[in-house]
Design a protein around this nucleic acid. Structure first.
Lengths: 211, 211
DNA sequence: GTCTATACTTCGATAGAC
DNA sequence: GTCTATCGAAGTATAGAC
């Protein structure tokens, strides 16, 4: 992984250890704390961020509403912690799969993950009126792009695709956009063109068609 | 346009005239009504759907909160009407431009419109927990895809791109996804790869590179 | 037809009991 | 260190005055 860090420094950016809130109480490894985050995550994905209120999170976790404010002083703190936890987990999963098989197929599988799409839409909308969340997402997105760029650059070389045909970063942005639009539309129930597009991507990924 | 209707029937789907709510009061052409919708639209785009509350919409419009419930019985009704109004306007604008110049450049301009991205994210997130909105968006998305498919099919033919190289609907979904991811990331402040991608698309659209 | 007064619910947050 | 009782603000919605 060191080579990737040298070629694409953003990959190895440390997440700054700045405290979310000075007055946070409660042990970081509290079981209750984790239960609340789990509940918030379910609500965010299934019902959207407007459903993530202190009362509903608590109800979903089978706990009292006030506990939310004990473990996360403000709802903003909860959102930031939730995002970091999920993003770090997703990044770690991706890292594991890419280290094992840094292929176009793996990259496509990562970008076409339905969980990722629901998660992204939830947080992208949330970012609109929570500035603290916006910078958090932006940092993660850049880090993710850098990591995937390292992978796709190698994958395209292996596949014998010339950089003049399509620059790796362009192929990556295309792939990301495709995964997102398919994910969002799947959620809405829109299906026009999906089957054809998936079939096409499968062929490209398998190397049977030039990208 | 009739030919498009025959080839792609979804284009000419009439929006069903089902009443949003039986008990809606107030003239459809009321000035106050339009002011409220304008205010709601500004709030949705700038601060996200969670900011679109009866109180804030009224404040933004310089009116009393209760008027929102007079003109739109529920907030759900307001959202549906807002979406329809915006979607119809967007579709009409697109139709005008495509009729004038049904080229890849026009299609790309439409899909890369920053307003469109902010609008989509806002409503896609909203759709998560408002079922009435979800079907409305899905219907519009399908209609839009059908219209653009008609255009891109012709544009690719004119450009001499064989359907075997890339099916028109696949090119369209790619273009839509690209416009969306660039729009969303622009809003977040993510920039990695954008310049290269835009340059690449310009070349493709200008016909200097096979898609 | 248009708008106001008001009911009732849920929100985030804190002060303080254990 | 952990949890509860409770407050004031903001939310949707309706009944009824003009």
């Amino acid at each position: 992984m060191l080579s990737s860090c040298l070629a694409f420094p953003a990959i190895c950016d440390k997440v700054s250890p700045v405290a979310i809130s000075e007055r946070r109480i409660g042990a970081a490894d509290s079981k209750t704390r984790a239960q609340l985050l789990d509940a918030a995550e379910r609500l965010l994905i299934e019902d959207g961020y407007a459903a993530v209120t202190s009362r509903r999170v608590a109800a979903e976790a089978g706990l009292k509403p006030q506990l939310v404010h004990y473990y996360f002083r403000t709802m903003d703190d909860l959102f930031v912690e939730l995002f970091r936890r999920s993003a770090d987990a997703a990044f770690a999963r991706a890292e594991k799969r890419l280290a094992k098989d840094p292929s176009l197929a793996t990259l496509w599988a990562l970008n076409n993950d339905p969980r990722g799409a629901a998660f992204l839409v939830g947080f992208a909308a949330l970012a609109n009126h929570r500035k603290t969340i916006r910078v958090e997402i932006a940092r993660y997105a850049e880090r993710n792009r850098a990591r995937q760029l390292a992978a796709i650059t190698g994958a395209l070389q292996s596949a014998g695709v010339d950089e003049g045909t399509i620059p790796p970063v362009v192929a990556l942005v295309l792939m990301t956009g495709l995964g997102q639009v398919l994910g969002i539309e799947r959620g809405l129930g829109v299906k026009a063109g999906h089957a054809e597009t998936l079939a096409f991507v499968e062929r490209v990924v398998a190397g049977r068609v030039a990208p």
